[in-house]
């Protein structure tokens, strides 16, 4: 464990009341400005790691530190994106983004920041639209802007692009990368998409077993921005496919994981 880790998990175990252990003695370090992906089949407990780090879940064994401080609940320095956009349907795009602003910010500064974020995610024309008028991809972009509104230093992303089509997914990944380039946020991403993992991450941690643990970590040594067609990705890809297949053989029906877990698990 390095004192400078942005995220530090040490021998973290989690079991839900009345159920088996979801995580068993899981350890993970994420350095500042690093992008790390947690890869694993559905039901492998990946979302649980994020929920613990975000403070949504509290009960656990082991140590969890963010920015060197133990996790005691949601804080403004940790932002989270979910699989669904989870926009407030009664607020316009602009007001949804404003929802993420710190309470202490003045109205004028807040409005300016919202505009900047909308420009960043290329949604300035949609600022007065309601969520029911947005496509899936647009909605996720609003969610992303909302996350960034609080100026977090760590971003947790729980399969954020799994609900949109392949083309939109790629656009969103590029957007995320460009945001990282500007802000150098630490990012912990959970996904089951190998290509997404390889496109974005510095390291890919493969979750296996039930209860889950990180079986291995793959380093992606390629410089960014990466070309999806790069041949060097090939062997890495094959490696991860193999690792996932092994992980798939050993997984159990974990109903406790979160959205998407129950159906994918059977």
């Amino acid at each position: 464990m390095t004192a400078a880790s942005a995220i530090s998990a040490e021998h973290v175990s989690k079991r839900y009341p009345g159920g088996d252990f979801v995580l068993r003695s899981l350890s993970l370090e994420v350095a500042p400005s690093e992008i790390v992906t947690l890869l694993g089949p559905s039901g492998s407990g990946k979302s649980t790691v994020l929920r613990l780090l975000s403070g949504l879940e509290r009960e656990h064994e082991g140590k969890l530190l963010v920015q060197g401080l133990p996790v005691q609940g949601p804080t403004p320095s940790v932002g989270m994106m979910f699989q669904e956009p989870r926009l407030l349907p009664w607020r316009t795009v602009r007001d949804n983004v404003a929802f993420g602003l710190p309470r202490t910010l003045s109205k004028e500064l807040g409005a300016t920041r919202v505009e900047q974020l909308l420009t960043l995610v290329q949604l300035t024309e949609a600022r007065d639209k309601l969520p029911k008028e947005l496509s899936g991809g647009m909605a996720q972009r609003v969610a992303l802007a909302r996350c960034l509104a609080g100026a977090p230093s760590v971003l947790l992303l729980d399969e954020p692009f799994s609900a949109v089509d392949a083309l939109t997914r790629m656009h969103l990944q590029e957007l995320l990368l460009s945001i990282w380039t500007h802000t150098r946020l630490t990012m912990l991403l959970v996904t089951h998409d190998i290509d997404e993992a390889l496109f974005l991450s510095d390291r890919v941690a493969v979750l296996r077993g039930s209860p889950a643990n990180i079986e291995e970590t793959l380093v992606v040594p390629l410089p960014r921005p990466r070309d999806r067609r790069d041949e060097a990705l090939g062997p890495l890809r094959s490696h991860l496919v193999e690792a996932l297949r092994l992980a798939g053989n050993g997984h159990s029906h974990e109903a406790a994981e979160g959205p998407g877990g129950l159906i994918a698990g059977w």
């Binding site: 029911k132 008028e133 947005l134 496509s135 647009m138 949109v164 460009s178």
Partner: peptide
């Protein structure tokens, strides 16, 4: 970078 606004998505906007 991003090629214009995407139109396809999980649910289509209202006509």
């Amino acid at each position: 970078m991003l090629v214009g606004a995407d139109t396809a998505g999980v649910s289509a906007p209202r006509p």
